[in-house]
Amino acid sequence: MSRTHFHGRTLARSQALQLLFQAEQTARSVDEVLEGEYSLSEGPLDPFAIQLSRGADGMRSDLDAVIAACSTNWSISRMPSVDRNLLRVAIYEMLEMDEVAVAVSIDECVELAKAYGTDESSRFVNGLLGRVATQLEEGTDVVADARLKVGAQAREDVEEG
């Protein structure tokens, strides 16, 4: 993937991204990936990477709803897989890991997007995560709100189609 060498929690986030990416590409869960052979650009596997990847994988449908609700002009299926999985890691961390500041989650995701994504990835993930952060600061239950928006959009699509 990248020739950049990461350390500490940045390395763990990179490993979580790689595990989620492999799970998505092979239509398996992260647990199934971890039970078999998996590939990491740098190792050994960090326990924080396991926690992030399992957590994000377990909340995938909720995280995808948040991504879809906060994304403008991009359906989740059209997003590059790296961006989609980076967003899953960062939003999981923002929602579930109180010991990590939201700004840190965003900054780390942007740096990983620069290393692994396209030329536009870092701006895209920064903008989307900024929208999530604003909602969190306002006290919005972003998961419940996203479920409502995604459900309403699905009903609209059925009515139009």
Rank of each mutant, 00 (worst) to 15 (best):
L86T: 00
W74C: 02
A103V: 06
R88N: 03
V82K: 02
L87Q: 03
L86A: 01
M79G: 02
V100W: 12
D62I: 10
I76L: 11
V100N: 10
G58S: 15
M97G: 03
D62M: 04
M59T: 09
S61I: 15
R60G: 05
D98K: 15
M94H: 07
S77K: 07
E108F: 07
L87W: 01
I106D: 00
R60I: 10
S105C: 12
E108A: 13
V104P: 00
A90L: 09
P80L: 13
V100G: 06
I67T: 05
M94I: 10
Y92Q: 06
A101R: 13
T72W: 14
A101K: 13
N73V: 08
N85M: 08
M79D: 01
W74S: 02
D98G: 09
S75M: 08
V100S: 04
S75G: 06
D57P: 05
G58Q: 14
S61A: 15
I106K: 05
V102F: 09
A56S: 13
V89Y: 00
V100R: 11
V104K: 09
I106T: 04
D64W: 12
E96I: 06
P80V: 13
M79S: 01
S81L: 15
V82F: 07
E99V: 09
L95I: 13
E108V: 15
Y92M: 08
Y92S: 05
M94F: 11
V66Q: 00
R78L: 10
V82L: 12
R88F: 01
A56F: 04
M97V: 13
R78Q: 13
D83L: 09
R84E: 05
E96Q: 12
A90K: 06
R78S: 13
A103N: 07
E99H: 15
L86Q: 00
V66K: 00
A69K: 01
A90H: 06
R60K: 14
T72C: 06
M97S: 02
V104G: 03
S77T: 07
S81C: 07
E99M: 09
A103W: 08
V82M: 09
P80T: 14
S77E: 13
A90G: 06
S71W: 15
P80G: 14
E99A: 13
R60P: 01
G58K: 14
D64Q: 11
D62C: 03
D62T: 08
A90E: 05
E93D: 12
T72D: 10
A90N: 07
I76K: 04
D57Y: 06
V104F: 07
A69Q: 02
T72R: 10
I76P: 02
E99R: 15
R84I: 04
D98F: 07
E96A: 11
L87K: 01
S75F: 13
G58N: 15
L86F: 02
L87N: 01
D98R: 15
C70N: 09
R60N: 07
L87R: 00
N85W: 05
G58I: 14
G58F: 08
